[in-house]
């Protein structure tokens, strides 16, 4: 790890001010990606601005038909939340399957989606549930938030404060784990509200995305069989030592079918 200045911020304004003053600053939420990257000397921010002390960024609240989760809420807190379990059980289940207990006790919702790892779990849920990402500046719709590999719509001094997830009639997350990292090789979050189906796909492509072709098929016929005819474009899939593009494309379909079965 290279040397850096550490700043523990007390409020969102304070954190943003510190960021604006820093030469090459980085916000750190749970640090589950950033700290290993720094330890490997692959990142060397001049300033690390810790969001861990900002009370207003944590917590889970229910407002009508949506549940709002503070950006600094840990995966373990989401997994254990009675409100999340009651409103969107699939979201609690997703959180319970991220990493290992140490990661879940430290990693946060805001950190995960701000990092936008192509194989992270949360982006699939944010997309499929049509969540709203709240920042210190504005509200961003899920469909506009994830813009590319490790890229989001966030500006440099913009901080996620919370994510608001609307309740779905039924939802399921099916994750095909990388046996080494236990990130998603393919993860499919399916949410059904009324007759509208939304499918969020992570792991398969450089950036989590909506499975529009799958949605189209399922909107007209909500059954696992409806997925069979959908063509998943192999050329858009990631390929690496763990899974080829062809296999990933196959898994997108299989995970979607299993999510449909779980929602039926």
């Amino acid at each position: 790890m290279y040397e850096f200045s550490y700043y523990k911020s007390g409020s969102v304004e304070d954190a943003v001010e510190a960021m604006n003053k820093a030469e090459d600053g980085k916000f750190v939420a749970g640090g589950q990606t950033m700290l290993p990257t720094m330890k490997h000397r692959l990142a060397s921010p001049s300033d690390v601005i810790d969001l861990g002390g900002i009370a207003e960024l944590s917590g889970i609240s229910v407002d009508g038909d949506s549940v709002t989760i503070g950006a600094m809420t840990t995966h373990a807190e989401v997994a254990a939340s009675g409100d999340v379990q009651a409103m969107i059980p699939a979201l609690a289940q997703l959180a319970s399957g991220i990493g290992d207990p140490a990661v879940r006790n430290q990693g946060t919702l805001g950190g995960s989606i701000a990092n936008n790892d192509p194989a992270a779990d949360y982006p699939a849920a944010v997309i499929a549930l049509g969540a709203t990402v709240k920042t210190n500046k504005r509200e961003i719709a899920a469909d506009d938030f994830f813009t590319g590999m490790f890229e989001t719509a966030l500006e440099d001094d913009e901080l996620i404060t919370a994510v608001s997830f609307p309740k779905a009639d039924s939802a399921a997350y099916m994750k095909f784990e990388n046996p080494a990292s236990r990130y998603a090789i393919v993860g499919v979050f399916l949410a059904k509200t009324g007759s509208a189906v939304r499918v969020g796909v992570t792991g398969a492509t450089p950036c989590a995305h909506r499975g529009m072709r799958l949605e189209e098929a399922l909107n007209s016929n909500f059954s696992a069989d409806a997925c069979d005819g959908v063509e998943i474009p192999v050329e858009k899939m990631n390929t690496d030592i763990h899974a080829s593009a062809e296999y990933r494309a196959h898994l997108v379909k299989v995970m979607t079918k299993r999510a449909v079965a779980a929602c039926s």
Binding site: N178, P179, A180, S181, I241, H242
Partner: peptide
């Protein structure tokens, strides 16, 4: 089932962390 150490054709070790080298765990 899990473990394999792989070099690419240029001799870079591409399974040099536990993110890529799968060790067996209790649930395997």
């Amino acid at each position: 089932l899990l473990e394999v150490c792989r070099y690419d054709s240029e001799g870079q070790l591409i399974t040099a962390t536990y993110m890529d080298y799968a060790m067996p765990r209790a649930d395997n």
